[in-house]
Amino acid sequence: MLNAPPYPTVLKPYGRALVDLALEREEILCLSGDLTRQTEVDLFQDEIPSRFINAGMAEANMMSMAGALARCGHIPFVHTFGVFATRRPFDQIVNSVAYPNLPVRIVGFMPGISSPGGPSHQAIEDVAIMRSLPNMTVIDVADAVEIRQAVRAIVDLPGPVYLRLKRGEIPVIFGDDHEFSLSRAQVLHDGDDVALVASGMMLSSSLAAAATLEAAGVSTSIVNVPVIKPIDAATIIRAASGAKAVVTAENHTIVGGLGSAVAEVLAEAGLGRRLRRVGLRDTFAEGAQSAAWLFRKYGLGTQDIIDSAWEALGRTGPAPQAPVLVTPLGEYSPV
C-alpha cells in the first residue's frame, strides 16, 4: 500500500528507531560528530547517555575509533552529515572499517542536493565512493517506514554499512505492510513501456512521474532500490526486460551511483535497453536558498524523469506535465 502525495511527514524516525533498538541491544553505541540534533541522535543522548559518545568535529578520529570499538564487540552507529561521513574520512573508512570488515554503521544525513548549503555540504558522490569499497553495504531509503525497518535490518550484518538519510521532515510513503529487504528491490508498479528505477528521495519523484506518464498512456513500472549495494540485479533485469527503456533517478551524481549500478547490471546481462540517468550531470550544485530550486535547476525534478522517459521512448510531441502540488505545511511533495 502506498500513500498519495503530498505525503504526511514525521520527525526523527531514525533517532527513535535507534533508541528503541539500543534499549534491546547493549552492544549498540551512538557516536556523533558534533551534529547530534541534526542527525536525530539527541534522542539517544537523552535516553541512553552512557552509550552516547560525542567525538567532536574530528571525523577521522571518530571513524578509526569506531572501528576499534567494533573490534571489541560493540556495534557503533556513527552520525554526521553525509559529506563528513564519507568524503572527509574516506581513508579511515577504508583502513579502519571496510578492510577489516567491521560492523560499523555509518549514517550520513542530508543527501545530495537536499541541502542548500553549497557544495561543501552536499553529499553528491557518497554512494559512488562507498559503493566502490569491498565489504560495504550501501543503503538510500525513501521514507520513514523504510528507515525504521532498515535500522533493525542492518544491526546484525557482519560487515560495515553506509546508511544515507534525508534530514528533517521525513515523508511517510509506504503503508505499515511495507517490507524492507536487504536482498530484494521492490517492483511497486508493473508496466511495459518504461521502467523507472529509483532510490532515496527520488522514489517519491518517480512515483509522481509514473502517475503522469500513465495518464499520458505510457505504461510505467517502478522499481524501488533502497539497497544500492549489493544490488538486486535479478529484479532490475526482470523489470527492464519487460520494458522498452529504463530511467534511473538518484539524488547524486550520475557517475558511480544508482544509475551506474543499473547500467552495469544491464550491460552484464546483455540487455539492450535505452537507459537515461536522472541525477547531477557531473557538476557541483551552487546558488540556492531552497533545495527544491536546486532540484529543478540541476534536472533532478519529477518533470525531468518524465521528460527522460518520454525522450527515451521516442515519443513525439511535448511530454506530459507533472501537476504542481499544493503542499500544506508539515507535508512533503516530491521534488
Binding site: L29, S50, R51, I53, A60, N61, M63, S64, M65, A66, G67, A68, L69, R71, C72, G73, H74, D91, Q92, V94, N95, S96
Partner: peptide, 24 residues
C-alpha cells in the same frame, strides 16, 4: 598485535577506541 595499519596516523585513534571500550 591487536591493530596495525599501513596508512599512517590511524593507530592512535584505534588505541583510543580500545581504551574507550574498556572505560565503557
Amino acid at each position: 598485535v591487536d591493530l596495525t595499519c599501513g596508512s599512517l596516523g590511524q593507530g592512535l585513534s584505534g588505541a583510543v577506541g580500545f581504551a574507550l571500550s574498556a572505560q565503557l
